[in-house]
Amino acid sequence: MENFVLANSGHNRDDEASKFGMWLFLFTELLLFGGLFLVYTIYRYLNSEAFLHASYELDVVMGTVNTVVLLTSSLTVALSITALQKGNIKLTQGLLVATILFALTFLVIKYFEWSAKFEHGLFPGMDHYDHLIPAEKMFFFLYFFMTGLHGLHVIVGGVLLGFVMWDIKKKKTTPDNFVYLENGGLYWHLVDIIWIFLFPLFYLIH
């Protein structure tokens, strides 16, 4: 009697539930950025000329390269799931290392981009920024806020994938039990999807 446990226990393994939970979390992430996209939409509508003018300050080449880097990292993480499903653990680990390296590449490029903006004094409170018209200030602040928040998600995603690698090493994530890898991958793809929208909205207003 004392040890009676139900068959449908919340402590059982349930991969579908874990994935479902991850998807729900991604919905909240979408709407978190959604609030920012809303602000962006309204201010761009109100100040389209200024946004256009300010966007020329951004480096299309760096933006494009970063887009390619993120898309490729999405590919490697997707491939790593296939590799693990096929039981090829070495390849899985290699692909995850590649993904994390791509994440770092993205951040390094972002660092150079931001540094260039800082040198131009375009961060709030800096010299050049203070002399901009309000609408252009809005553009640059949204640029820093949105790419900054996105960068934070890149870091979180990279760390998550690092944890998954640790799990694979500890043989907790295996070809029979890989929901953590799937969930880490899902998060990573979300980071990619958000960038897919940020890129044209900031770099490609022409």
Binding site: L31, L32, G34, G35, F145
Partner: peptide, 19 residues
């Protein structure tokens, strides 16, 4: 999530003095 990001914007406005 919408209020989450809105509140973050308020914090950012206060910290960075943007409008």
């Amino acid at each position: 999530p919408v209020i989450g990001i809105t509140l973050l914007m308020i914090i950012a406005e206060r910290v960075f003095g943007v409008g």
